[in-house]
Design a protein around this nucleic acid. Sequence first.
DNA 1: ATTCGTTCTTGACAAGTGTCAAGATTCTGG
DNA 2: CCAGAATCTTGACACTTGTCAAGAACGAAT
Lengths: 212, 212
Amino acid sequence: MARQVTGAARRVADAAEALRDEKFNARRIELAEAALETLGELGFARTSLREIAQNSAFTHGVFHYYFSDKLDLICCCVRHYKAKCVTRYDEVVATAKNRDELTEGFLGKLAATLRNEARMHRLWYDLRSQAMFEAAFRKDVLEIDKSLEAMIWRIASRYAELGGKRPASSSAALYALFDGLFQSALLRHLAGDKTAIPDLLDEVRRLLPTVC
Amino acid sequence: MARQVTGAARRVADAAEALRDEKFNARRIELAEAALETLGELGFARTSLREIAQNSAFTHGVFHYYFSDKLDLICCCVRHYKAKCVTRYDEVVATAKNRDELTEGFLGKLAATLRNEARMHRLWYDLRSQAMFEAAFRKDVLEIDKSLEAMIWRIASRYAELGGKRPASSSAALYALFDGLFQSALLRHLAGDKTAIPDLLDEVRRLLPTVC
DNA sequence: ATTCGTTCTTGACAAGTGTCAAGATTCTGG
DNA sequence: CCAGAATCTTGACACTTGTCAAGAACGAAT
């Protein structure tokens, strides 16, 4: 019976610990989300823990309590960012009944992203560049890059399928192409170029039928 | 005669001033070149003026004498970097007598660049990302981006010409494609992925005939 | 050789950085 | 209700940062 009691106690203790862990992790994500605000505003180079704390409802000590150091915090930010990003076009892909619907849905989301989430995306490009210097970022960044490539591939192969074809390029090339176009458009958009978004849409509209 | 004398004096003074200016500018470039070493090693975020000075033959005060502030220095670095970069493939384009020669010349330079100048190129991607946050960088960065796009366009249109064709895509799309592929390969290469370079070469070799 | 302008060195300053530890507060199980 | 753990605040630390000013070293013209 002692064994049963300890067994039950163990289960309870485990459950409690799991709950604590979950709560701990939820808090980490809250903090990461707050940090993303400031990171998107200032970029990696100019963002300090204190600045993050001041632009949020937290004090700078809390960040040290939940993260072992600054890199740990930013890695958590990056990972969290990924989850939001990767499913952006999935609904469009799932619901589009023909090529035109897919095209327009894709272009619409593309334009909206560029317009409304420019800050988050410049941060992504910033952190991807940081990964070229800081080994600690590489694993997460490479993983996100893979996910984004897969996301583009889902769009492209669905587009091809709706035309009874197969994508004409490799997944890597398609991702490079769209990512390169988006990056360039983002920079121009942030520089105040009003034609950046329409130019991107034109380009993608023209490109889609030729690559898929 | 007084007029002649003052005229001559003016000419002499002007020449002296031009000489001083030239010397001043040459020194700026020396300093920028030294700064590029450290920037390529550490990236924008982690590079300080003192670190630059310590990794060079200069003291940190000299940088303040020749540059109004840190941004001024880095802008000068970026501009100087541009000049070196943009002509990289010109000889190959000028001398290649057929598609195969152009392909092999291009791929050779591509691989060599990735292998030997990875640090300079990760710095370029870093600074291009910084330009999304720091308006002071934008003008120079956008200009360099244009030059690089033109460089790719020269290769592509020559390749097309050697096959009696015209490039099948816009200049913007071609640049986005190759830049995206290069950026991805660079990150993988820096992460220690031995297949990054051969994969890039394969991809480009396959792509060239389909886009031009 | 002396003077004057250019070039460079040195040291200092204030502000900002990541980190941490001591203690206040809040939560929770008994 | 209360003790102990979890969570959070505050303030301090050692250090780095960009900037600058005072003056030394240098070069060239007189």
